[in-house]
Computed example of a mutant assay.
Amino acid sequence: MIDADGYFGARVAEHYDDPSSHAFQADVIASTVDFLAELAGGGRALELAVGTGRIALPLAQRGVPVHGIELSRAMLARLRAKPGGEAIAVTIGDMAATTVDTKAQGPFPLVYLVYNTIMNLTTQEAQVACFRNAAEQLAPGGSFVVEVMIPELRKLPAGQNIVHFHTSPTKWAYTVYDVTTQAAPCHYITVTPDGRGEHREVPFRYVWPAELDLMAQLAGLRLRERWEGWTRKPFAQDSAQHVSVWEKPIS
Rank of each mutant, 00 (worst) to 15 (best):
D3G: 14
D3H: 08
A4P: 13
Y7K: 09
Y7H: 10
A13F: 13
E14G: 15
D17I: 11
D18W: 03
D18H: 08
P19Q: 04
P19R: 06
F24T: 13
A26R: 01
D27G: 06
D27I: 11
R44H: 02
A49H: 00
V50F: 00
R54K: 05
P65I: 06
P65D: 11
G68W: 02
I69P: 04
E70H: 07
R73V: 12
R73I: 12
M75N: 07
L79Y: 03
T91N: 02
I92P: 13
G93W: 10
D94R: 02
A97L: 14
G106W: 04
P107C: 08
F108Q: 08
L110R: 03
L113F: 06
L113W: 01
L113P: 02
Y115H: 14
N120F: 07
N120Y: 10
T122V: 08
E125R: 08
Q127T: 00
Q127G: 00
V128I: 11
A129C: 01
C130G: 05
C130A: 09
N133Y: 04
A139D: 02
P140Q: 07
G142D: 15
S143Q: 06
S143F: 07
V145K: 01
V146T: 02
E147N: 03
V148I: 14
I150P: 14
L156A: 03
A158P: 15
V163L: 00
H166I: 06
S168F: 00
S168Q: 04
T170A: 12
A173H: 10
Y174C: 11
V179E: 12
T181R: 03
Q182T: 08
A184H: 03
A184T: 10
P185E: 04
C186D: 15
C186N: 12
H199W: 05
E201P: 06
P209Q: 02
A210N: 12
E211M: 05
L218P: 14
R222P: 14
G229T: 11
T231Y: 15
R232H: 07
R232S: 06
F235D: 02
Q237W: 08
V243Q: 02
V243H: 03
S251Q: 14
